[in-house]
Amino acid sequence: MNRTIYRSLIVSSAALSASSFAVSFTDPIDGMLDMGEYLAENAYGFLPVPVIITEPALGVGGGFMGVFLHESEQEKETRKKLALESIDGGANLIPPAVTVAGGGATQNGTWFGIIGHRRTWNQDSIRYMGGMGYGNAFIDIYADIGSDNQWIPNQSVSFESDNKGYGGMQKLQFRVGDTPLFLGVSQFWARSEVRSSNDTVNAIIENLIGLETTASGVGVNAEYDTKNSFFFPTDGYSINAEYMMYRDSFGSDNSYDTFELAGQWFHPISDSWTIAFAGGYESLTKTERGILPPLAKPYVKLRGVSAFRYQDNYVSAIQSQLMWHIDNRWTISGFTGVGSASNEVDGLYDDSHVAYGAGFRYLIARRYGIHMGMDFAFSEDDNAFYFNVGSGF
C-alpha cells in the first residue's frame, strides 16, 4: 500500500471532523506520514481501516472499520512527551482504551456490523473486552460422509447455508499481584437462524436442530502476558486459556462445553529481524445427546484457509512468522502454518492443511505503535489477501 493511498484514507476520515484541519499528518521526528497526532488531538479522530474481503468462504467484498482511541489529557501529554524523546517511547506505555466499529458486505449477499471495546484500569491491573454484532452470512458447510461398504467410499459434501444472527461477548480479567498473570470470567450470548437454499437440506436442519437457536454460556479464563506491545509485539509471549459452559440454565438451547488454549511468542533475532510463533487448540464436548447448529463447532483458523472449511470437535493450528524491519516504518513478513480438525483428539494432524504467504506493515501511528498493512495468503484449496492492523496472528 503506497503513501498516496494512505493519504487518501486519512483525508477522507479527517473530513468528518471540522477541527482536523489543524492537525498534522507528518511525524515531527522522521518526517513520515503518521496519524498519531490526529488520533490524540482530534476528539473525533479515528484510524480508518478499509475492510477488503477476499475470504474464500464469503466471496469478494469490502467495508470500513473505524478504530477510536480514548485517553485522558494527562495520558496524551505523557505519551506525546515520550514519543518526541525517542522513536518508540510512546508505544511502550499501557495501551489506551480502544473502540472498533464498522461493517462490510460481500458479493454473495453476506453482510455484518460490529462494535467492540477494550480498556484497562488501575495501571493495567484490570482488563475488560466486550463486543456486539449483527449479520447475515452465506457460508458453505462441509461434512464428511463415511461408509463401511467398500463400494461406497468416504466423501466430503457441502451445502450453502444462510445464517442470520446477533449476539455479544464480554471478558473481565484481574491481574494477580504484580505478575503477568490475569484471571477472569467470560460470557457469550447469540441468537442465530440457519437455513439452506436446498429444500431437502432445509427440512433436515429443521427436524434435527430447528431453524433458530440460542447459544448462551459463561466461563473462566486465564492469561499470562509478557508481550512488549498490545498493537504490534516484537518481544515476549502470551498464553491464553478459556473454558466455557453452555447450559439451559443460562438460556442456551444446547448443552456443551468448549475449551480453548492459545499462545504467541515473539523473539527479536536482531534489531532488524523478529521471529514469531503462534499455536492454538480448541475442543467442543457435548454434555447431552443432540445435534448442534452447523457453525457451533470450532474450525481451523489460518490466513489463506476458508473459514469453516475444516470443522470438528477438536481443532489445532500452528503458525510461524519471520519479520524483517526494513526501517522504523516498514516491515515485511513471511508466514506459514498448518492446521487440523478431527472428531477425536488423537486424530489431530492425521489429515493436515497447510497455508503460507507474505505481507507488509507500515507504522501508521508511531506514538501508539500501531501498524497497518496487508497479507497475501495461499493454501491447497484457496487464496486470499487481508487488510490487517497488528502482526497478523
Rank of each mutant, 00 (worst) to 15 (best):
F277N: 00
L39F: 07
D178C: 01
G113H: 08
F68C: 02
S320W: 00
Q123A: 09
E212N: 10
I209F: 08
A137L: 14
H371E: 06
Q319G: 02
K80P: 02
S249H: 04
R7G: 03
E85N: 06
M35V: 11
G217A: 13
K80E: 06
S340C: 05
F250E: 11
F277L: 15
Y142T: 10
M245S: 10
P294V: 11
N198Q: 10
G210Q: 09
G31D: 04
S340D: 04
D30F: 10
S12W: 14
V23N: 03
S283Q: 13
R366L: 08
G89I: 00
S342V: 01
H267S: 14
I139E: 03
L93E: 06
G62I: 04
L211E: 06
G337W: 01
R361Q: 10
T200L: 09
T214M: 00
D88P: 02
W151G: 02
Q123F: 05
D225W: 09
F231S: 09
K80G: 07
D144F: 01
P180I: 12
S255R: 09
K227V: 04
M129R: 15
I152P: 02
K76F: 08
I275N: 03
G116Q: 15
F277V: 09
S342T: 06
E193C: 03
R309H: 10
A143V: 09
Y134W: 09
N154R: 06
H353I: 01
N42F: 00
G304F: 04
V176A: 12
T26E: 07
A307T: 07
I332V: 11
N2G: 12
A215T: 08
G219H: 11
V194K: 04
K286A: 02
R367I: 12
A384R: 09
N92P: 00
I239W: 09
T336H: 03
G280C: 02
V67H: 02
D271M: 12
A91R: 11
G146V: 13
A365E: 01
